[in-house]
Amino acid sequence: VHHSSLTPEQLISCIMHAEPPEIYLMEDLKRPFTEARMMMSLTKLANKELFFMISWAKKIPGFVELSLTYQMHQLESCWLDVLMLGLMWRSIDHPGKLIFSADLKLNREEGNCVKGIVIIFDKLLAATTRFRELNLQREEYVCLKAMILLNSNICSTSPEMAEDLESRGKLQLLLDSVTDALVWAISKQGLSFQLQSARLAHLLMLLSDIRHVSGKGMKHLSDMKNNNIVQVSDLLLEMLTNGS
């Protein structure tokens, strides 16, 4: 079945099936935490998640029909937003904690050992609190994550991408389908029409907060790498360099 003929319900079901598995750091972050140890653990997790994220993107209906240039561009510009939204979702039932993985749960004070990271932790915790207040549903969460992937940074495209009208058109249609799916997921909740619109607006406005934190996170990670506090893997380095 082609993605264009999927109902919103079927599309959400496909996106749900694309969800990556739960990840584990698989090693104890030794206490007391040091800057180098914590950064190493966080980048190790990010690297593991990136591999799963690429498989996830390929399973979003229609994504692999975009040109490879578009696929790469979308992933490079949104990867940290996607990681951060995933982190918020895992942390939603744990006020005051950031659940980086099942075996790496940190509170804001534990961020103190890494220069400049507490301000990022605070923004992540604040956005998580907002999602908790909104009682974000799993169906809404998967739609928002797919929207981040499809919506990323279209304005800064290269001439080569601007000329690829076919992929641009496909991307727009895909984004419209996922938007419809999100609207459908909200409409099932028995809210008045006015409250449905407000909820849609609240959820979408949070994406701009996530974009803002991810920009801070990219800058932070670049600084940490440039100051040789942490080494990053080939894939992470590539995403960091091409994404910023």
């Binding site: 591999f51 690429i54 498989s55 390929k58 399973k59 490879l68 696929q71 790469m72 992933l75 490079e76 080939d234 894939l235 590539e238 995403m239 091409n242």
Partner: peptide
């Protein structure tokens, strides 16, 4: 782009 391109073009599991 080598690593990302490689991962995008390899067949999914």
């Amino acid at each position: 782009h080598t690593k990302l391109l490689q991962l995008l073009t390899t067949k999914s599991e």
